[in-house]
Design a protein around this nucleic acid. Structure first.
Length: 256
DNA sequence: ATGTCAAGAAAATCTTGA
């Protein structure tokens, strides 16, 4: 089973790019972030025509997450990250696909930091850790996939010293990510490629893609039940070079 | 500070978030 995660940066604005990539990459399951579309504006017909079922949680203007599956039933488990009734941002959706619990997440960016947005990011992280700890107790195959807005180590940033005060790389952010992983999760791409520079995002500014000034912020975390089934992983970085493309590239794993 | 995008409010550009 091939599982992908892709921050599309606008599911309608980037629909031709998304459809082209789906056809080319043929993932079985896809986690999408930054739909930037209200619930009723999700392009279900085009997604269905491409052969995919879909479950999504939209929001006007910003955020929005979805899970797609090719000829497989998607059984919703929940939408919205538990732990704060007042948080209305659409950043989390969970579903069973085959025997795997797919958790699609879009962790807050958190800039400018420090400030209320950074506080929200760290609180969101705490809520995610509470949920992920519960999921580990079920002892089933689980994947946490999405845009974490975190570069876990210096290897994941083209120029680490420039990013130490940024919400994506501050010590508090990295610590939150590492304590999440320490619950018992496996960073799938790092497990297969422990020493390689791998990027999943290149800014639109200053020809970042052309200079390969990238960041690794889209991740797959695997539960112990899934770790041994990991076969391969990669980044479809050429997609970042397409016209009218997202600032992220699709990332994928294959599991037995 | 800058740079580039998309969506939304509003009616051609500006604001916001990333």
């Amino acid at each position: 089973m091939k599982i992908a995660t892709y921050n599309v940066n606008g599911v309608n604005g980037r629909l031709p790019v998304l459809l082209k990539w789906l056809k080319e990459a043929q993932p079985d399951v896809v986690c999408l972030q930054e739909l930037k579309a209200p619930q009723e504006k999700f392009p279900l017909e085009a997604i269905n025509d491409a052969g995919y079922n879909a479950l999504w949680h939209g929001q006007k203007s910003w955020n929005g997450v979805a899970i797609l599956a090719h000829n497989i039933e998607i059984k919703e488990v929940g939408r919205g990250l538990p732990g704060d009734e007042e948080d209305l941002q659409s950043r989390y959706i969970e579903a069973m696909v085959n025997d795997v619990l797919i958790c699609c997440l879009y962790l807050p960016n958190g800039n400018p930091a420090p400030g209320p947005k950074f506080d929200y990011k760290l609180k969101w992280f705490e809520r995610l850790k509470a949920r992920s700890a519960e999921l580990l107790k079920f002892n089933i195959p689980v994947v946490l996939a999405g845009d974490f807005n975190v570069m876990p180590t210096e290897l994941d940033v083209y120029k680490p010293e420039r990013w130490v005060k940024d919400a994506l790389f501050r010590p508090e952010t990295r610590e939150a990510f590492h304590s999440l992983v320490a619950q018992g999760w496996t960073d799938a791409l790092r497990k297969l490629y422990p020493d390689e520079r791998i990027y999943t995002f290149w800014d639109y500014f200053r020809n970042a893609y052309g200079r390969d000034a990238g960041l690794r912020i889209d991740h797959f975390l695997l539960s112990p039940k899934l770790e041994g089934r990991l076969k391969s992983a990669g980044v479809d970085r050429h997609v970042r070079g397409w016209e009218k493309t997202s600032d992220h590239a699709p990332v994928w794993i294959e599991i037995e």
